[in-house]
Every structure is written in structure tokens, then in C-alpha cells.
């Protein structure tokens, strides 16, 4: 009865919708329009020749797009399996202990609040061939120094900090979900003799399945947005463009190579890919939600 009168609705919703439409939806559709133009340089914004699907056709023959796509999918797999996986293990462990839980929670989440730029620079200091942390460790052990950003290793070394940084994020979300499970459920389980691994597998996991699904979706959309860390760690996809992600390659084309239309086409592709993968995953993971 309070909310029968619909007039205040406008006052509540309009400001948010205005900002959202002008600064998110309009640019988004404008960007789609740009992807059909040939815009030479950011100075030529607003103009540009109509070239139809040329920019999209160009993507099919661009080898670096292939590499970027492969790397992005690789990052996505790592994010879903390794990142969310480690986060889940850590959360289950922290949930099972009493002493120190607060300490671990603080420490694990910490990298999330640090800027990716700072972490990128930090890992630069770790990977440096001469005098980097990793090679100094190897040296102490009497081993040969390793070129961490070689053709073969680079993509793993660039992914490592990205994955490492956000484990804490999913950890906190999952832990929160675990804390929400009522204590009685575990007590009943104990009486029935369900303990340890079985308890986790048959009780905890199904109960937080929704939370895990949220994490997986966030991990997927997050891995499509990866930019800062690879850009600082290996600018221009060093070595040889092998560590380009769709995001960094879009930036390279738009802002360095100054072919704005092509960059727009890549960013449209990023969104389409995101929609497609999220949709598929949601279909795949369709699962009865348990209400408790």
C-alpha cells in the first residue's frame, strides 16, 4: 500500500537510467557503429568512411587476433578452474578452522585491493632476467637463470599474477556463502556419520552451488576485461605479440596503431564472446537450487 503511488518511481530511477544510457548504452551502440567505419586516428573521430564488414573480415585473417583469442580463452579456463578452484579449497579450509581465520581472510583478500599496475611492476621485478627475484632464487640454488618471458613461458608468466591476484576475491565470496550454511545442517550430518570429505562433497558444495556459479560467471566476464596487468608486465604483447589478450590488442590498435574502426570491431567481438560464453556456461551448469 506504501508503494501503490507510482510517481516517486521516476525520481528514484531516472538519475541512474540517464547516467547508464548516456555513458554506457549510447557509447556502446556508437562503438558498434564505429566498427563499420574506417577511422584513421583518434583525431578523425566522428568521421570516417563506411566500409561495411571490412573490419570484421580483416579480423579473420589477422594472426594476432587468433593469438589474442587463444590467450583470452586460456585465461578464462584458468580463471574458472584454477582461480575459482583454489578459492574454493582455501574457503573450505578457512571455514573449517577457528583460530587464525580472520588473519587468513585479511591476507588472502589483500592483493585484490592493490592496483594491477602495482602488481604488474612488482612481477616485473620478479621476472627480470638479470637480478630478478626468481632468477636470484635459482642462482642461490646453483641453477642457470631462466628467461621467464620466453615464447613458451610468457603466456603462463603473464597469467600467473592475474590469477593469483583475484583468488582472494572469489575466496571471500565463497567463504561468505559457506558462513551462510546453518550450523544445524552440519550437526545432523555428524550424527549421521557424514564427516570430512564426504561432508564437503555431499553437503557444503551443493548448498553453495549458486555462489560458485556466480563466481564462475564473474571469472568469465573478468577474464574478458583483462588489461592493466598484461599491459604493464609485457607491453604490446611482448614477446612478439604472443601475450596479447583481446583487450590489450584492442588498445594497441585503437591508441597506438590508431586504426580506430578496427579496434571497435575487436571490442564488439569481445562483448559477443562474453555473451556467448556466459550463456553456454549457464546452460551447462543448470542445477537445482537448494533453499535452506
Amino acid at each position: 500500500m506504501i508503494y501503490k503511488d507510482k510517481k516517486p518511481l521516476f525520481i528514484f530511477l531516472t538519475p541512474a537510467l540517464i547516467v547508464l544510457f548516456i555513458f554506457l548504452y549510447y557509447p556502446f551502440f556508437r562503438n558498434i557503429a564505429n566498427s563499420f567505419l574506417d577511422i584513421k586516428g583518434l583525431g578523425a573521430l566522428g568521421g570516417g568512411k563506411f566500409v561495411g564488414l571490412d573490419n570484421y573480415v580483416r579480423m579473420t585473417s589477422d594472426k594476432t587476433i587468433g593469438i589474442s583469442l587463444k590467450n583470452t580463452m586460456f585465461m578464462m579456463t584458468l580463471a574458472v578452474v584454477v582461480q575459482v578452484g583454489i578459492a574454493l579449497i582455501l574457503a573450505l579450509m578457512v571455514d573449517s578452522i577457528r583460530r587464525g581465520a580472520q588473519f587468513y581472510r585479511t591476507v588472502f583478500f589483500f592483493p585484490v585491493v592493490v592496483s594491477a599496475t602495482a602488481i604488474g611492476l612488482m612481477f616485473n621485478l620478479f621476472y627480470a632476467y638479470n637480478g630478478g627475484l626468481f632468477n636470484q632464487i635459482l642462482e642461490k640454488l646453483g641453477k642457470e637463470p631462466v628467461l621467464w618471458l620466453s615464447d613458451k613461458l610468457a603466456i603462463y608468466m603473464v597469467s600467473l599474477p592475474v590469477i593469483w591476484q583475484y583468488v582472494g576475491f572469489y575466496f571471500v565470496i565463497i567463504l561468505t556463502g559457506l558462513n551462510g550454511i546453518p550450523e544445524e545442517i552440519y550437526e545432523y550430518a555428524l550424527i549421521d556419520g557424514v564427516t570430512g570429505f564426504k561432508k564437503t562433497w555431499y553437503i557444503s558444495l551443493p548448498l553453495i552451488w549458486d555462489v560458485i556459479k556466480v563466481c564462475i560467471t564473474l571469472a568469465i566476464t573478468g577474464s574478458l576485461k583483462v588489461f592493466d596487468l598484461p599491459w604493464v608486465l609485457a607491453p604490446n604483447g611482448a614477446p612478439k605479440g604472443l601475450t596479447h589478450f583481446l583487450g590489450t590488442y584492442m588498445y594497441f590498435n585503437t591508441f597506438i596503431s590508431q586504426s580506430v574502426g578496427y579496434g571497435a570491431a575487436i571490442s564488439v567481438f569481445i562483448v559477443v564472446l562474453g555473451l556467448f560464453v556466459s550463456f553456454t556456461v549457464n546452460k551447462l551448469f543448470k542445477h537445482e537450487t537448494i533453499v535452506y
Binding site: 632476467y129 638479470n130 614477446p239 612478439k240
Partner: peptide, 21 residues
């Protein structure tokens, strides 16, 4: 060329030259 020729920065290699490495 240096081992990390594909991943290093110009400043770093310039210093290598300065330092007689």
C-alpha cells in the same frame, strides 16, 4: 642479441651497454 631481446625494454639494454655487459 640478449637472451630476452623479445621481452626487455630499451632502457634496460642501454644500461647493459653502459655497464659494459
Amino acid at each position: 642479441f640478449p637472451v630476452d631481446v623479445n621481452a626487455t625494454k630499451n632502457d634496460i639494454v642501454t644500461n647493459m651497454f653502459y655497464d659494459k655487459k
